[in-house]
Each structure stands twice: as structure tokens, then as C-alpha cells.
Amino acid sequence: MKPAKKLAAMAALFAAVMLPAHAQILVGQTAGFSGQVAAGVRETTDGALLFLDAVNAKGGVNGQKVELVSLDDKFDPKLAAENARKLIEEQSVVALFLTRGTPHTQAIIPLLDKHGVPLVAPSTGAIVLHRPVQKYIFNVRATYQREAEKAMTHLASMGVKRIALVSANDTFGDDGIAGALKGLAASNLQPVLQEKFDRAKPDFAPIVAKAAKADAQAVLMVASGAAVVDATNALRQAGSAAQIVTLSNNASSGFIKSLGANGRGVIVTQVFPNERAMTFPLVKEAQDLARAKGLGELSPAMLEGFAGAKVLVEGLRRAGPKPTREKLQAALETLRKFDLGGLELNFSPEDHTGLDFADLSIIGTDGKFRR
């Protein structure tokens, strides 16, 4: 090879080696991949990855692939905050995404405010994340209060009047109960029992005894999956036939499996359309991608993650070819009348609620959510 050509080849090789790897958009997630909410967390994340993988397969967003960096916080608010710090300060993620839990999400708000990092689609319906508006939090799903209120008015319309309210002693529990009390008040009812339990060390025996004494026809459980399963088992072992009702944080296939035979007839509120309702383009898109990957049927939790990923990607797309935290924040606030696929989502600087859809489902004898 002639010297000039050899030098040119060496220069080209050197340039190739020195060029940075294909740029990726880093998005961070902290959630309880182990512990009492693990089943739901895995399903929401699988749903999100279903959409993100499809986007990346087509070249990503503005030519950049989106990488989701997920850390396990074991459903511990303190660990959630530390994970968020690592993702923001050490890995320089452009956004946080799909956190799980009310106190857990609240624990990371100071970090969002300090670094100007948007959080998209937290998997919690806490009213404190909606009102007053949290500048850096962009909710996609409806509030727990909306769900609980709808559940209570539904029970009242069926003639169920003796309703017990049981909740974890945390901000999530308080939030759901506030909505339930609104629904009961609208139906001119009062709860026959209102009890809290220690989220870390629940003891349902005394609560079950009180529910039996109050002759409760229905029991609303505002708690995470494992606690609701334990409480349901305790009620059934005590001979109670009370209707069990819980919120959409437990809308996962894993929750149904954990309930086993006691799952039949449990009412679970939902914040997205029926995962088998192909008339919704959102559902059809998710179903088609799931089948293509051999994942089988969708769960409501997967659909929540899928919808959240669609919002995240649209925000990144509007943020331009070199998205920053600031650009993404501004872009998300332009999502007005954004069609998720049969559901219209709206954000503005004054409103970060997104959707207000709420529905009810019941676990059938086949172990599936029915509407």
C-alpha cells in the first residue's frame, strides 16, 4: 500500500475508534422489583419495554435509542430516593420514569426539583402528585381518589350499604380512603368500620374480628398486593363472605395468581380500558406487539406501562435530536389533545394530570379481569 493511502486508512481507523458510540437516551426507573409489589412492577415495566423495544427497532427517537435503566428499591422509600439520586447525579438520565408507590415517589420530589428532572408516568394515583401541580411530575393515570370514589358509588348503587374501609398507614392509604369517603358521602352512607394497619408489619386478625362484628357487606382494601392477599385470606378463613374491593395498583396478573382460589369475585378498579377491548387503538397496538413477541395476553398493569412509554417517547420526540431535561420538560407541557389511541391526554404548565379514566373490573372464575 502506498504511504499516502496507508496514512489515509490509518486516519480513518483512528477516527472510527475515537468516535463516540451511537448516542442513547438514558431514562431511569426506581421501583420495587422485589418485595410486595414485585409482580405489578414487572408487568408495568414489561408493558413499557414492549413499546420502547418497538420504537428502538425502528431507529429510536430522532435517531437515538432509548435505554431504560431500572433499579430495584425493594419498595422502600429511602432506597427509592437513593436510587433516584444515583440515576440523576451519576448516570445523568434525562428523565425518571414509572416509579412505584406514593411515599416512594414523594421521597424523590426534592431531587426532581433540585436537578430539574421530569418524572413521567409514576405508577401511583396519589392526589399529592396532581394537586397542587408538581412542576416536574407528569402523571398519565387517574387518581386513587377518583377510583375509590367510583367504587363506593358503584357498591351503593347495588344496594350495598355496610362498607368497611381498611388501609395501610401511609400516604397511599390515606389518599384512597379520602376518595372512598367522598363516594360514600355522595351516596349518603358512612363506613361501618375504618381501620389502618402497619404497612411494614400488618396484623389482620383484629381487623377481621371487627369487620365480622360490624357485619360488613364489603371491604375496601387500600394497600399493596401482598397485604391485600393476606387480608383477603384472613377474611375468608374467618368465614366472611364480604365483597373485597381494591384499587388499580393491584391490577396485575401476578396479583390474581397470589390470591389463588380467593381471587374469584374480587373487584379491582382500573384506570385504562379493558386490555381485550380491541376497539381502542391503544389496546390493539399493545396486543399486536405482545403477540409478535410471544408474550401472550396483556394485563392492565402492562397496558399502564405501555401508555406511559408512549407519553415518554412523544415528549422525547418533541424535545428534538439532542433532548435535555429542560427541553423534555418544555416538550411534555405541549402535549395537548394527544391521542394515546382512543384516550386523549392533556398536559399544560397548570395541569399535569394527563388522564381521568376510571372503571371497575371483577376477577372471574377463569382468573382474568372482567368488565
Rank of each mutant, 00 (worst) to 15 (best):
M1D: 12
K2S: 02
A4H: 15
A8M: 09
A12Y: 01
A15T: 00
M18T: 06
I25K: 02
L26Q: 11
L26R: 11
G28L: 01
G28N: 03
F33T: 00
F33L: 13
A39I: 01
A39S: 08
V41A: 13
D46C: 04
L50W: 10
D53L: 08
A57V: 10
G63D: 00
V69L: 14
F75M: 14
A81T: 04
A84H: 08
Q91V: 00
L96E: 13
F97H: 13
L98P: 06
T99F: 15
G101I: 11
T102C: 05
Q106D: 14
A107R: 13
A107H: 14
V117N: 12
L119S: 09
P122N: 12
S123L: 11
G125F: 04
G125C: 06
A126C: 04
R131V: 10
P132Y: 14
I137C: 13
N139A: 07
N139S: 10
V140M: 09
A142Y: 00
Y144Q: 10
Q145F: 08
E147W: 14
S157N: 07
S157A: 13
K161N: 13
I163S: 03
L165R: 08
T171K: 05
F172R: 02
G179M: 12
K182D: 07
G183N: 05
N188Q: 10
P191Q: 02
P191L: 01
Q194F: 02
K196M: 07
K196S: 12
F197M: 01
F197Q: 06
R199V: 15
A200D: 07
P202M: 02
P202Q: 07
A205P: 02
P206G: 11
P206M: 09
D215N: 15
A216L: 07
A216W: 02
A216P: 06
A218W: 01
A223K: 05
V229E: 03
D230P: 04
A234M: 12
L247C: 04
S248W: 13
F255C: 07
F255Q: 00
S258P: 01
G265S: 00
V271T: 04
E275A: 11
E275L: 02
R276T: 13
G294I: 11
L298Q: 08
M302Q: 15
G305D: 12
A307Y: 12
L312I: 08
L312E: 01
V313P: 14
V313W: 11
E314K: 15
E314R: 12
A319E: 05
K322P: 05
A330E: 05
A331E: 03
E333L: 04
D339Q: 06
T353D: 05
D356N: 13
F357Q: 09
L360H: 08
D366K: 13
